[in-house]
Design a protein around this nucleic acid. Structure first.
Lengths: 208, 208
DNA sequence: AATTTAATTAAACAACTGTTTAAAACAATA
DNA sequence: TATTGTTTTAAACAGTTGTTTAATTAAATT
């Protein structure tokens, strides 16, 4: 898109355009490094309208964050609470869904980690959904496997490994690309292949 | 330490005290959220001295970042280039060293994430060390296993899994703790246990 | 002891920050 | 059309930011 073409998209209303611009800038630069003027410029909309529609920078951030996280967990919830599927089937579905989401939003993990670790309790929704997660049918299956002796270590290890193997490549992506170890296409191909590999690996880990 | 006791530690010279304060504040809050005044206050040293000793906030950050990364790779280098050890032995050593480092410095990952988010290749040290890693004996062993057919997928998957399983728990730590899923002690115990578990899991993954 | 150099300080600076204001342009309604 | 409410605008505001200055104190050198 050229500089001129990037200008006002009059099809979408102001509020929505601002929100999308904010989502883009926040995820790229993080909360602290984002200037309200960046958001206004990205949307090509007057600065004052950010506060007019969203009251404050922080309120806008919380809105976007809540929406994003909520959307993520809405996708995961039916998977982890499906009482008809096995543990492995659930993990397969999680891996597939999650990697697909990350392929579409590659800088999402860096964003979450940055906000998560910079301390502020801007994200109560994360811990809320975290609790929901650890009360899920998936976790019940895991703890039962553990107490029955089939799983020989703390169940939380399975979640750590699942999420670690899914998310880490995207965190390290800038490193892989900048160092020339992987091209963007190679990265994409490997991550796509991991959709099938990770469940296999997890199965072996569980049965060890 | 009480407010009074926290005051000037006259044993260590100004420059060193400032650098340590900077390291602490940067790692806790991230680059963008850190104020030079925070650093000066943390060290209980006059604001102007930050610029007097380090020229600018950015220069100070780069100095600390370079030192930290270099220190990390100095520890890893002898492990991954040891020609007398097997692949698994190398991975065992990496897991042990890395987890130990993260236990002692839990918000180290944020530091890295910060650098990764800043986008621009300000720090050639990362890509430099990345290339060093790419040429290591460890990577030679991996690629040889791959080309000989013993490893059935791209070798980079092994590194992704190794680092993912090591680092992810520390990234998600604030979530585990704030949600009450794990106590600090439980987290510590699990991470300690993973020092032995991860190499076992990696062995299974490699032989699949 | 006298002189030069380095370290420290409080204050100021200019640019930048999120937010507000008051007026203008626009849309809806009667 | 006249009136009302809504959206948009440029400008201003007050506070914060990284950085510099000019003066003072401490240390080192002669």
């Amino acid at each position: 898109m050229s500089k001129a073409e990037k200008k006002k998209n009059l099809d979408t209303p102001t509020e929505e355009r601002l929100k999308e611009a904010a989502r883009k800038v926040f995820t790229q630069k993080g909360y602290a490094a984002t200037r309200v003027r960046d958001i206004a410029a990205e949307a090509d909309i007057n600065l004052a309208l950010v506060n007019y529609y969203f009251r404050s920078k922080e309120k806008l951030f919380e809105l976007i964050m809540t929406e994003t996280i909520q959307n993520l967990f809405e996708k995961i919830k039916p998977i982890i609470n499906d009482e008809t599927t096995t543990l492995i089937e659930k993990l397969e579905a999680i891996v597939d869904q999650y990697i697909q989401l990350l392929i579409e939003n590659p800088d999402f993990p860096l964003f979450i980690v940055n906000e998560l670790m910079s301390g502020s309790n801007k994200l109560p929704i994360m811990t809320d959904n975290g609790k929901m997660f650890f009360n899920s049918h998936l976790v019940k299956q895991l703890t039962q496997m553990h107490s029955s002796g089939k799983l020989k270590f703390h169940p939380v290890n399975i979640m750590m490994n699942t999420l670690g193997m899914i998310i880490f490549p995207f965190l390290a992506r800038p490193l892989f690309l900048r160092s020339g170890i992987l091209t963007p296409e190679a990265f994409r191909a490997i991550v796509e292949e991991r959709k099938k590999l990770i469940p296999v690996w997890l199965t072996q880990i569980i049965n060890s």
